[in-house]
Design a binder for these strands. Structure first.
Length: 492
RNA sequence: CGGGAUGUAGCGCAGUUGGCUAGCGCACCACGUUCGGGACGUGGGGGUCGUGCGUUCGAGUCGCAUCAUCCCGACCA
């Protein structure tokens, strides 16, 4: 089972693919552009779901579920929205198959054509707002705070595992409010939920900011984003939260009677993160030995590898390990004992490193005799032999330290690769080398587009917490006046 | 949908100007020796060479068609 990983420095995208496939996260499906998420990959996603779901519930959000299929006519209601998604929709046109009259298997039954085609949801604003119409009549019915965990389909031309697949898993929150201010506050609250999750759980330093009008969600008045830097210096949009104004309420006629007895349209937000976060996790922390999982998101936090020659030794070590496992689990850690007797220790070490398990215990006859265990950490690849006595109490601190170290490493990497830039020639030279450039921008879509055409770089966001830089200056491209810097980068 | 490439065992590949029973590495199965950083030996199983048609005494190899996949663009969580 030789699972050599391509070196990150040699071929970044091959390295990424190797990590996804060889660490058993996912593989390409037989269906074009779709992905099979394997149990180990799904366990990580499940853990993300659990943590996020708890965070949502703390903000008053409840889970619900809406249909997979959306009648085509719903899409024509909001002009900008349909323009944004029209080019990548899967469409259901028939509802029955039949045996081919020519004997070539099965064909679509032409008599089973749908009166109105159904669109496989690329996102659910339309079907949800069509539903919300019936839920709202009075100000007392507001706010509505719903989230759904589901799959969506976007028929992308070029796909990459986790980063862009034709079908992906995500959550999409959709809220309805009585006032503009309340909706804006909700959009803002949710982007901060995402940022906290990214920073504290995924150990991913992210920049919170507004999208420029060009990069805004189709149908939104404002889009908030968290932007992360990958180890090749490219930007990855890791989550978004949209203030939708009254656009969807007007398109779907969702009104309520306010306290003064007047009819008003409701105000909306929507927000989502997807399995793309898995891609961020891999690309932000992985190294040449494989994944590096932050303990807070690792399905297995501690893996134990016994080292033995005979069955007696194996059993004696395993007994000790099961005892240790019980104690660690009592403290809330997830532990795996690799008791496979067909593989050698070196192989197991390499395999669990590839899978990114934060802490490894190795225990052999020597340790059993001395009452010790070899503790290895994935983030630094260092090993230390420690006394078994009291080891349970040290693990929590160790996991915390690993979590912090992984975050700090990503933070420092980003710090080294973000710089101010005030010269167009310098911008052109540097933007392709894996930098986030903080530049002045005149605020026009034309300038942003011209910069994109010249360099492929886009405005990732107009920062609101880190990297905020309000000062007078001149646009990097047009030279027109500007009073704050924005983040430019090449993105995924 | 434009430009480029590739389809040979589960994966990665070789196969010369057409020529004998289609090969190699990894993985897989059996037995033995190993086991503190990706073990080794011996034996074994697995193939409509993407598909179709053609040229030929003979096609993995040549021609045409077709399908699929990948890479570079346009699109994008």
């Amino acid at each position: 089972m030789a699972k050599e990983v391509t070196k990150r420095s040699e071929n970044y995208s091959q390295w990424y693919n190797d990590l996804v496939v060889k660490a058993d996260l996912a593989e390409q499906s037989a269906v074009r552009g779709c992905m099979v998420i394997k149990p180990y990959g799904y366990a990580i996603w499940e853990k993300m779901q659990r943590v996020l779901d708890d965070a949502f519930k703390k903000t008053g959000v409840q889970n619900a579920y809406f249909p997979l299929f959306i009648p085509k006519s719903f899409f024509s209601r909001e002009a900008e929205h349909v323009a944004g998604f029209a080019k990548e929709c899967a469409v259901v046109t028939h509802h029955r198959l039949m045996n081919d009259p020519n004997g070539n298997g099965v064909v679509v039954d032409p008599s089973a054509k749908l009166e109105e085609e159904l669109i496989v949801r690329p996102t659910s604003e339309t079907i949800i707002w069509n539903t919300y119409k019936n839920w709202v009549t009075s100000w007392r019915d507001l706010p509505i705070l719903c989230n759904q965990w589901c799959n969506v389909v976007r028929w992308e031309m070029r796909t990459r595992l986790f980063l862009r697949t034709a079908e992906f898993l995500w959550q999409e929150g959709h809220t309805a409010h009585a006032t503009s201010a309340e909706a804006e506050a909700k959009a803002n609250e949710m982007v901060h939920v995402y940022a906290d999750f990214a920073r504290n759980v995924m150990a991913l330093p992210v920049i919170i900011g507004h999208k420029s009008p060009n990069e805004r969600f189709a149908g939104a008045l404002d889009t908030l984003t968290i932007e992360a830097m990958m180890q090749d210096g490219k930007a990855l949009q890791a989550g978004t939260s949209h203030f939708l104004g009254q656009n969807f309420a007007k398109s779907f006629d969702v009104t309520f009677t306010n306290k003064e007895g007047q009819q008003e349209y409701v105000w909306a937000t929507s927000w989502g993160v997807s399995t793309r976060l898995m891609g961020a996790l891999i690309m932000a922390h992985g190294d040449d030995n494989g994944l590096v999982l932050p303990p807070a998101i690792a399905p297995i936090q501690v893996v134990m590898v016994p080292i033995f020659k005979t069955d007696e030794e194996h059993n004696a070590i395993l007994d000790k390990m099961y005892e240790l496992k019980k104690n660690l689990e009592a403290k809330g850690h997830s532990v795996k004992i690799d008791d496979r007797d067909t593989l050698r220790p070196g192989f197991k070490f390499a395999e669990w490193e590839l899978k990114g398990v934060p802490v490894r215990f190795a225990m052999g006859p020597r340790d059993l005799q001395n009452g010790t265990v070899e503790v290895a950490r994935r983030d630094t690849l260092t090993k230390e032999t420690m006394p078994l006595e009291g080891i349970e109490d040290k693990i929590e601190g160790l996991l915390d330290d690993i979590q912090k170290t992984i975050y700090q490493k990503a933070f420092d990497f980003r710090a080294q690769n973000v710089e101010k830039c005030d010269d167009w020639e310098e911008f052109k030279a540097k933007i392709g080398t894996g930098k986030f450039l903080l530049c002045h921008w005149d605020g026009t879509a034309e300038t942003e587009q011209a910069i994109k055409d010249a360099t492929k770089a886009t405005i990732r966001c107009i920062p609101v917490d880190s990297f905020v830089c309000e000062e007078e200056g001149k646009d990097i491209f047009s030279g027109k006046p500007s009073h704050k810097r924005v983040v430019f980068a090449i993105s995924y």
